[in-house]
Computed example of a mutant assay.
Amino acid sequence: MSRTVTLVLVDPAGAPLGALPPYDVPEPWWQEVGSVVAEARRRYGVDVAVLRLLTADRPEPPGGHLTYLGQVPERPAVPLDPVSVDLSPHPLRAPWAEPGGPARSLAWAAAELGRLGRPVATVAQQRTWNLSAIWRLDGEDGSAWLKQVPVFFRHEGAVLRWLAHAAPGVTPTVLADDGAGRVLLDHVPGEDRYAAGVDERVAVAADHHAIQVRAADDVAGLIAAGVPDRRGPALARWIRAMLAPHEVSTVDGLLAGLDDRLDEVRRCGLPDTLVHGDLHPGNVRGDGERRVIIDWGDAFVGHPAFDILRLTETLDPATAGPLLAAWAARWRAHVPGSDPERAVALLRPIAPLRLAAVYAMFLAGIEPSEHPYHAGDVPACLAQAAAEAKRD
């Protein structure tokens, strides 16, 4: 599956110039714009910064015909097709999605690298969507990555700073952080481990357990640094608030009993700690020698079982069983008398319910043109939560 792309161009002041003829790119995933930029340069000699998604011809990813807005330094020499698009401001638009936004972020990153004695030679845009904008910056002294996130993910910088101090080596090295959503990370060799097998997931779970044991002793500090508090009653209030605008009749019973269920979870005896929030293998990067956990924007303070449930959710029960048993044994050794298995069982339907609330939070925090990225995720997660509750 591929994408067909129409790229509407604006100048640095945001004035519309027209659109390049449609062209195909190989990756179907809408947020991946590296090939969009590369093909515009190869086909038309145009250097463009992709700003945001404008329209899609299907309700959700992947594939289809997408129209993006892109900024160019000047009117290109190639003929442009006339096009009518709504370019009016929106209060929820990300700073990198505005004309001039990428240039401001890249100027900040180049200045920070310059102070470190690592001048930038080339820049390549990799991703842009409602959850992040990512660029790779290369120079003679190595590569770095600029990541910029929206307001609801701004605590990622605080998490990375805490991890660098409390558990060095488990995440990419932070080179700079502006405290407002931009973070500059040193390159980590290897690849994102989407295809990780069971043995590798076991190792990731063990790595993460050490982080969570350390974080359990500094919950107050993490919350003070801005990491969201999703402990017990706070989690219940947040889930209900996020899901209030959505149709939730399929999980009415689960929501009604949420406080009592979370009380039972608390009585299982495991401590609240730092939760990654999206601990699937794709958020692990490694090269066989070093392994790090990336993308901490979903992090919160809460129950550690949410991460093991996420790490095992795509595995069949027979395969997941030993991984869950090893996780439970580690926590039982750390907290004698606790009941990790009971906590997992109680939280199994809450995990997709929480994810539904996460996606609802995204939808509430992004402009409508980008809703197709997540609109189908809320009902899908609610359906999964209802199914888990029936099996409970």
Results as ranks from 00 to 15, higher is better:
residue 10 V to S: 03
residue 34 G to M: 05
residue 13 A to D: 09
residue 40 A to W: 08
residue 27 E to C: 15
residue 32 E to P: 06
residue 39 E to W: 02
residue 18 G to V: 14
residue 27 E to F: 07
residue 25 V to H: 10
residue 45 G to F: 00
residue 39 E to T: 01
residue 12 P to Q: 14
residue 33 V to P: 11
residue 19 A to M: 08
residue 11 D to H: 15
residue 45 G to E: 13
residue 43 R to N: 12
residue 26 P to I: 08
residue 36 V to D: 05
residue 26 P to F: 00
residue 15 A to V: 10
residue 19 A to V: 07
residue 21 P to E: 03
residue 38 A to G: 02
residue 33 V to W: 08
residue 37 V to R: 03
residue 30 W to M: 03
residue 36 V to P: 05
residue 29 W to M: 13
residue 10 V to N: 02
residue 20 L to I: 06
residue 28 P to C: 05
residue 18 G to C: 10
residue 14 G to Q: 13
residue 13 A to K: 07
residue 23 Y to T: 04
residue 32 E to M: 04
residue 20 L to T: 04
residue 24 D to N: 00
residue 20 L to C: 12
residue 12 P to H: 11
residue 28 P to V: 07
residue 11 D to K: 01
residue 19 A to D: 01
residue 22 P to W: 04
residue 40 A to N: 10
residue 45 G to I: 09
residue 32 E to H: 14
residue 36 V to N: 09
residue 38 A to I: 01
residue 23 Y to M: 00
residue 34 G to F: 11
residue 24 D to G: 00
residue 42 R to P: 02
residue 16 P to T: 01
residue 12 P to I: 15
residue 43 R to Q: 15
residue 46 V to R: 08
residue 36 V to T: 06
residue 35 S to N: 01
residue 31 Q to C: 11
residue 14 G to A: 13
residue 11 D to R: 12
residue 29 W to G: 05
residue 31 Q to P: 12
residue 41 R to P: 00
residue 36 V to M: 03
residue 13 A to R: 15
residue 45 G to M: 11
residue 38 A to W: 00
residue 15 A to G: 06
residue 33 V to L: 08
residue 20 L to A: 06
residue 18 G to K: 10
residue 31 Q to D: 11
residue 22 P to V: 00
residue 14 G to F: 11
residue 12 P to K: 15
residue 43 R to C: 03
residue 13 A to E: 14
residue 46 V to D: 07
residue 22 P to Q: 06
residue 42 R to H: 04
residue 11 D to N: 11
residue 37 V to S: 05
residue 25 V to S: 07
residue 10 V to C: 05
residue 19 A to L: 09
residue 26 P to R: 00
residue 36 V to G: 08
residue 13 A to Q: 09
residue 10 V to M: 13
residue 22 P to T: 01
residue 20 L to V: 10
residue 45 G to C: 04
residue 23 Y to P: 12
residue 36 V to A: 07
residue 37 V to D: 01
residue 19 A to Q: 06
residue 13 A to I: 06
residue 22 P to G: 00
residue 39 E to C: 02
residue 27 E to L: 01
residue 11 D to Y: 15
residue 13 A to S: 14
residue 28 P to W: 14
residue 45 G to T: 02
residue 14 G to K: 08
residue 43 R to P: 12
residue 31 Q to H: 15
residue 41 R to E: 12
residue 30 W to T: 01
residue 19 A to S: 10
residue 22 P to R: 03
residue 35 S to W: 02
residue 18 G to D: 08
residue 15 A to D: 03
residue 13 A to M: 13
residue 40 A to L: 10
residue 16 P to G: 07
residue 11 D to I: 15
residue 45 G to K: 09
